[in-house]
C-alpha cells in the first residue's frame, strides 16, 4: 500500500528534487561564500576574510545600516508582540467562543491577507494612510506590520489550540476556576508553544518585509531591507552580502526555534 503511493519511486523524482533544491539554494550559497571574500569584487575570489563584516559595522555605510537595523528590530519586536496578542485573542474567540454566527467569516478574514498579493496590500495600506491623512514615518510602518503579521501569528497559535481538548478548561472550571482563571492558569500555559512559535514567525516576517515597508515608510526612515535595497541601487558591494548573510542567520535561527518550540508537546 504505502509503497505504491510512495513519491520516491516515480521516475525523475531524484532529478527534479535536486533541480529544485539547486535553484532555491544556490544563490544563497553564493552570497554566503562571497561574503567572506577578501576582494572588493563580487566575482573574483581572493581568499578568506572577515573584512566585509567589519565594513558593515565600521565602514562608510555603517551609520545608515545601524539605524536601519535598530528600526527593523524595534518594529519587528513591537509588531510581533502586538500581532501575537491579537492572534491569541482571536484564536480563543474563534475556537473557544462556541458557535457564533460569524465564526467562519472571522477565520476567513484573519487568514485572507496570506492569500492577497503583497503588492495589493501595500498599495491599499498606502492609500488608506493617505486617505486618513496619516503622516508617513516609523509609526505607519509599525501599524502596517502589525496588520499583516496577525495571520502569520494566528496559524501556529490556532493549530496549537485545536490540539488542546476543552476538557482541561472544563476541569479547571469544575474546580472552581472562573473562565478567566481557566484561561490564564490552564489554557494559556498549554498554548505557550504555539504562541512563542507564532511570535517568532511574525517577528521574521516583519524583519524581512520589503514591499509593504517600502510603500508606507516616510522619507528618510529605513528598515534593513529598504536600506539594503537602497544600497544595492548604487551597485552591489560585498558588504551587502555580509549583511544578507547575517540576516539569513537570524532568520534561520528564529525559524528553527519556532519549529522546535511548536513541536514540543506540553500535553504529554
Amino acid at each position: 500500500m504505502a509503497k505504491r503511493y510512495d513519491l520516491r519511486v516515480y521516475p525523475g523524482f531524484r532529478a527534479v528534487t535536486f533541480l529544485c533544491l539547486f535553484v532555491l539554494y544556490a544563490p544563497l550559497v553564493v552570497v554566503m561564500v562571497y561574503s567572506f571574500n577578501a576582494s572588493p569584487s563580487i566575482t573574483n575570489w581572493e581568499g578568506l576574510s572577515l573584512r566585509w563584516y567589519a565594513d558593515v559595522f565600521t565602514g562608510p555605510e555603517s551609520a545608515k545600516f545601524k539605524a536601519a537595523a535598530r528600526n527593523s528590530f524595534v518594529i519587528a519586536l513591537v509588531a510581533a508582540s502586538v500581532a501575537t496578542a491579537i492572534a491569541t485573542l482571536s484564536a480563543t474567540a474563534i475556537l473557544r467562543g462556541g458557535r457564533f454566527r460569524l465564526r467562519l467569516v472571522s477565520f476567513g478574514l484573519i487568514s485572507l491577507p496570506l492569500m492577497v498579493p503583497e503588492i495589493v496590500t501595500a498599495v491599499a495600506t498606502l492609500i488608506f494612510f493617505n486617505a486618513i491623512g496619516f503622516d508617513r514615518g516609523l509609526l505607519t510602518i509599525l501599524l502596517a506590520h502589525i496588520a499583516f503579521c496577525i495571520p502569520f501569528a494566528y496559524l501556529p497559535i490556532a493549530a496549537r489550540m485545536q490540539g488542546i481538548e476543552d476538557t482541561y478548561e472544563q476541569a479547571a472550571m469544575d474546580l472552581y476556576a472562573t473562565r478567566r482563571q481557566a484561561f490564564v492558569r490552564v489554557l494559556l500555559p498549554l498554548m505557550m508553544p504555539g504562541i512563542v512559535s507564532g511570535f517568532l514567525l511574525a517577528f521574521i516576517v516583519s524583519l524581512d518585509d520589503f514591499i509593504i515597508t517600502n510603500f508606507v515608510k516616510g522619507a528618510g526612515v529605513e528598515t534593513l531591507p529598504t536600506a539594503i535595497f537602497g544600497s544595492v541601487k548604487q551597485g552591489i558591494r560585498p558588504n551587502i552580502m555580509a549583511i544578507s548573510t547575517m540576516l539569513l542567520a537570524v532568520s534561520v535561527v528564529m525559524v528553527t526555534l519556532s519549529w522546535l518550540i511548536s513541536r514540543r508537546d506540553t500535553t504529554r
Partner: peptide, 18 residues
C-alpha cells in the same frame, strides 16, 4: 460550573499536564 459544589472525575482524567 465554578459555582456548583460538585466535582467531576473526567473519563480521560483531564489532569493539567503542565
Amino acid at each position: 460550573p465554578h459555582k456548583r459544589p460538585v466535582n467531576t472525575v473526567f473519563q480521560n482524567y483531564a489532569l493539567f499536564p503542565h
